[in-house]
Simulated assay, not measured.
Amino acid sequence: MKHAMHAFLIITIFIFCHYVMRHFWGDGWSSWLSNIDNQTDILFIPAKFTFLYGPLVAAAIVLFKQERLFESIGLSFDGFINYTLAALLCCIPMTLGYAFLSSELHLSISAIITGSVYAGFFEEVIFRAALFGVLFKYCRWGFIPAALVSSVIFGMGHIYQGNDPLSAVMAVTVTTIAGTWFAWLYCECGYRIWFPMWMHIFMNAAYGIFGMSGGAAGDLQGNLFKATAIVLSIVYVEMLIRKGKPREVVLSKLLQTRAHSAACAVN
């Protein structure tokens, strides 16, 4: 019963943050922040993400408090350097492929920060750690329902990338699948956001720097190179497991997680 109540509370807070908090964000804040950062959104985006989803992150930290303050939202620095280097190596073939396909080069620092760094960090903390991670790790939801809840909402947030109904559906479908993949990476990398976060950042950055077309769904050639990053990330996780890391997403946890280790118990 306690797990069901915690899940209900987290989902309710998320819905409030996602659909209600935006009505409390006044236009005055937007104009003021945009003027300060010269319309680059360097200050605007983190301020708005923090305002909108701060209650969700705070609730996850308070409800599922661990010995280390930010452990429950995947922000322990264990393995940070290794995960960063691994994500970089996984994304190099895709980046080289994009460079080969593209005749464009966009090296705007502000665009990379707002479109890649902020997106990777905030979306992984909110959707993978504070929503999916809490439901799967602490509330004993199965991987499939927890991933669907977070990934479908994540995917719907990219519907704007479609230019027509079909491309909008494709954008939502692709980003929903991507959200599920990021959720799996989050689980299998010790419930740390670093590997999925850097994969998210590097892939977004390569896409933006080389001006790849096709929106979230991409095009055939671009997707072939994108697939190299996905395959290499899976190889990396399998290497971790072969070295002794326990596999987190197993058949018995797909629909409902019935047993957690002591490390995953709610304090």
Rank of each mutant, 00 (worst) to 15 (best):
K2A: 14
F8P: 03
I10G: 02
I10A: 02
I11S: 04
I11D: 03
F14W: 10
F14H: 04
F16N: 02
H18V: 04
Y19Q: 09
G26K: 14
G28K: 15
S30A: 10
S30I: 13
Q39C: 10
Q39H: 15
T40I: 08
D41L: 11
I42M: 10
I42P: 08
A47I: 12
K48L: 13
F49H: 10
F49V: 07
T50L: 13
Y53I: 01
Y53N: 00
A59L: 06
V62A: 13
F64D: 00
K65H: 14
L69R: 06
I73F: 04
F77I: 11
G79M: 04
I81H: 08
T84Q: 03
L85D: 03
A86G: 10
A86E: 02
L88I: 11
L88M: 14
L89P: 03
C91A: 14
C91V: 12
L96R: 09
F100D: 00
L101A: 07
S102R: 06
S103H: 14
H106I: 12
T114L: 08
A119G: 08
G120C: 05
F121P: 00
F122A: 06
E124S: 09
V125G: 00
I126S: 05
F127W: 02
R128W: 03
A129F: 05
A130I: 09
F132H: 02
G133E: 01
G133K: 05
F136W: 05
F136E: 00
G142R: 10
G142S: 10
I144L: 11
A146L: 08
A146D: 03
A146M: 03
A147P: 02
V149N: 07
S150K: 09
V152S: 13
V152K: 04
F154G: 08
I159R: 13
Q161T: 15
D164L: 12
D164R: 13
D164K: 12
A168T: 13
V169D: 05
V169R: 07
G190D: 01
R192Y: 00
I193E: 01
W194Q: 03
F195I: 05
M199T: 11
H200T: 03
H200V: 01
H200N: 05
I201T: 04
F202E: 06
M203E: 01
Y207S: 14
Y207N: 12
I209P: 02
M212I: 11
G214T: 06
G214I: 07
A216E: 08
G218L: 02
N223D: 09
N223T: 11
F225A: 04
T228Y: 08
L232D: 04
L232R: 09
Y236V: 03
V237R: 01
E238F: 15
E238Y: 15
R242A: 13
R247N: 14
E248K: 05
V249S: 09
V249F: 04
V249Y: 06
L254M: 10
Q256K: 15
A263F: 13
V266C: 05
